[in-house]
Amino acid sequence: MAVLVVSLYVLLLVVITCEIARKLLCRERRGYEVYVAEIISTVQLCACSHELQLLSDDAPEIALTLTYVISVVHARTFRSAAGNPGAVLERYWCGSLSGACALRRIACQLAAAAAAGLGMQRAWAFELSDLHARHARSGFACASPIEHVGLLEAVAVELGCAFAVHAAATLTRGVEEKYRVHAVAAVITAVVYAGGSTTGAVFNPALALTSQFPCTGSTFVKNILVYWLGPVLGIACSLLLFNKVIVAFTSKSTSDKDQNLMKKRN
């Protein structure tokens, strides 16, 4: 119970600190606030994910429940920030971001993710709980979850996780925001439960950079393919399905109905 209380306080402190920083630094429109928001929101996402990942070793059920809660909190506080290079690439592919802006936002996310990882190590070094103390004594070492997993299987899991989350976000775009965030959070929790034991279910290249790349048991190239290529392919497949295949099929069906109706009238 003491471990859980400390982790809850850490999560609460991270969210409150980041929200205060957003309100102070992003309230003036000077052109750079979108990058500041990306940095702050990515720090929030990665710091909370690190704490939950650590907590999952001792209390996986509680960590999974908190994953749902913190996903809702992220969705309600991030505003226009993505916190995920895959989401930035989606906006670029859809034409809402220029290439230069997308690259700058991704650079901000990667830098913020690295900073969050170092910041959490500093926080764990205070050994506020037994969980933190054990992790600090191990030198913050971690083992890669894909050490004994085949490359294709690992890529498929990360692809599937990213596809499922993006599909949920796409299908709920017409839903009122206060309900939509819970639907997407539920899907995120489900994919973390389903894929967590295989790859960690990261589906975020920035988060993977700081949570999986430093771990032993996997190579840099394998991490690139699994944690960077996999999620990008998952989002690309979702975009292809919903923006191309389904739209084309729907347009064809509508066209066929109109032609049949015209034939009947004639």
Results as ranks from 00 to 15, higher is better:
residue 116 A to T: 03
residue 117 G to V: 02
residue 118 L to K: 03
residue 118 L to D: 03
residue 118 L to F: 08
residue 121 Q to F: 00
residue 122 R to S: 02
residue 124 W to P: 01
residue 124 W to S: 01
residue 125 A to R: 11
residue 126 F to P: 00
residue 128 L to P: 05
residue 128 L to C: 08
residue 129 S to M: 02
residue 130 D to W: 10
residue 132 H to E: 06
residue 132 H to A: 05
residue 134 R to E: 02
residue 135 H to N: 14
residue 135 H to P: 07
residue 136 A to F: 00
residue 137 R to S: 10
residue 137 R to A: 10
residue 137 R to I: 06
residue 138 S to W: 00
residue 138 S to E: 07
residue 138 S to I: 00
residue 138 S to R: 08
residue 139 G to C: 06
residue 140 F to V: 05
residue 141 A to L: 06
residue 145 P to A: 06
residue 145 P to I: 00
residue 145 P to D: 06
residue 147 E to T: 15
residue 148 H to P: 00
residue 149 V to N: 04
residue 149 V to I: 14
residue 150 G to V: 14
residue 150 G to L: 11
residue 150 G to F: 12
residue 150 G to M: 15
residue 150 G to A: 13
residue 151 L to M: 13
residue 152 L to F: 14
residue 152 L to Q: 10
residue 155 V to K: 04
residue 156 A to S: 15
residue 157 V to W: 02
residue 158 E to I: 03
residue 158 E to D: 13
residue 159 L to C: 15
residue 159 L to Y: 13
residue 160 G to T: 12
residue 161 C to E: 10
residue 163 F to L: 15
residue 163 F to V: 08
residue 164 A to F: 11
residue 165 V to C: 13
residue 168 A to H: 03
residue 168 A to R: 04
residue 169 A to Y: 11
residue 171 L to I: 07
residue 172 T to N: 10
residue 172 T to D: 04
residue 173 R to G: 13
residue 174 G to W: 11
residue 175 V to Q: 12
residue 176 E to A: 13
residue 176 E to G: 02
residue 177 E to I: 14
residue 178 K to F: 08
residue 178 K to D: 14
residue 181 V to M: 02
residue 182 H to V: 06
residue 183 A to C: 12
residue 183 A to S: 10
residue 185 A to T: 07
residue 186 A to D: 05
residue 187 V to C: 12
residue 188 I to S: 07
residue 189 T to P: 04
residue 189 T to K: 10
residue 189 T to L: 12
residue 189 T to W: 07
residue 191 V to G: 02
residue 191 V to E: 13
residue 191 V to S: 02
residue 193 Y to D: 10
residue 194 A to V: 07
residue 194 A to S: 14
residue 196 G to S: 01
residue 197 S to A: 12
residue 197 S to N: 10
residue 198 T to Y: 12
residue 198 T to F: 09
residue 200 G to F: 01
residue 201 A to E: 02
residue 202 V to D: 05
residue 203 F to W: 09
residue 204 N to C: 05
residue 207 L to S: 06
residue 207 L to N: 07
residue 207 L to F: 05
residue 208 A to P: 13
residue 208 A to T: 15
residue 210 T to P: 03
residue 211 S to Y: 02
residue 212 Q to T: 09
residue 213 F to M: 07
residue 214 P to I: 00
residue 214 P to H: 06
residue 216 T to G: 06
residue 218 S to T: 14
residue 218 S to W: 05
residue 221 V to F: 10
residue 221 V to N: 04
residue 222 K to T: 09
residue 222 K to N: 11
residue 223 N to W: 07
residue 224 I to E: 04
residue 226 V to T: 11
residue 228 W to C: 11
residue 229 L to R: 03
residue 229 L to P: 03
residue 230 G to D: 09
residue 231 P to K: 12
residue 232 V to K: 10
residue 233 L to M: 15
residue 233 L to C: 15
residue 234 G to V: 15
residue 236 A to D: 03
residue 236 A to S: 14
residue 236 A to G: 02
residue 237 C to S: 15
